[in-house]
Nucleic acid binder design. Structure first.
Lengths: 122, 122
DNA sequence: TGTCTATGTTGACGTCTGTCGATACAGGTG
DNA sequence: CACCTGTATCGACAGACGTCAACATAGACA
């Protein structure tokens, strides 16, 4: 089995993208991919929305549960779309409501990126 | 000892800022602080510069060692300043050259933010 | 002192981004 | 079917951002 990736549709490029930040200088392509994810979390409203989903029971939440972040409904929808495009959230419609849930693999990849750098540069 | 923070000048707010993303919804203030750091890493050039510093021997590098990222010198300087303002890098002039180094505590805080969310939402 | 190199700052420019109101779409209910 | 609620899309606008050339500053050295 030369390729372990059996669910290619769910994972964005980041999961297999990048070594820890301190291992070697990132290439331009690697940086392009990884920066998209950090950028997605680089807005306060998106960070609150993401945290609201992640902390909701079951790791998923209806939009109506998390919309109270001080911006209009279209803006909430816009930010959720951005998070989805970055691979951090996935969405599913169930009847009247749309539920968003976190993508653990992508988050773990980002965490590893940082954790490695934090450890080895002390 | 009610307050363990004995080196307040070095640490930005982030270190003591935020619980794991999945613990509870982030407040507006917390999100404001944390988003600044993610945003700092949300640009490909900055990510490459940061990675170049982090992967350089000793966890520090002279600007001249890492300037080859395809943008002009003023732009490099601009991005390094942004990373510094975000608390991810610190700088020190030694003679002719300026050296940048990573701030491990801040990185660790960001990693913890993500790692917790990745683990508990699987 | 003057000059050279390394780095930071300024000002300007085009592009990207966050925000909103208006509107469209989807699904439930009557 | 009509109507209501929840969510997404569209179009527009102001402000933020990345980039550069030009200039300024700091230190080394003669």
């Amino acid at each position: 089995m030369p390729n372990v990736k059996v669910l290619p549709l769910l994972e964005p490029d980041v999961v297999a993208c990048c070594p820890p930040l301190n291992e070697r200088p990132m290439s331009a392509d690697e940086a392009e991919v990884a920066a998209k994810m950090f950028k997605a979390l680089g807005d306060p409203v998106r960070l609150r929305l993401f945290s609201a989903v992640a902390s909701h029971e079951g790791g998923e939440a209806c939009v109506c549960d998390i919309s109270d972040v001080g911006v209009s409904q279209p803006t909430v929808s816009h930010h959720l779309k951005k998070l989805k495009e970055a691979g951090l959230l996935s969405s599913e419609r169930r009847g009247t409501w749309v539920y968003y849930r976190v993508e653990p693999a992508v988050l773990a990849a980002m965490g590893a990126l940082l954790a490695g750098a934090a450890k080895a540069t002390a």
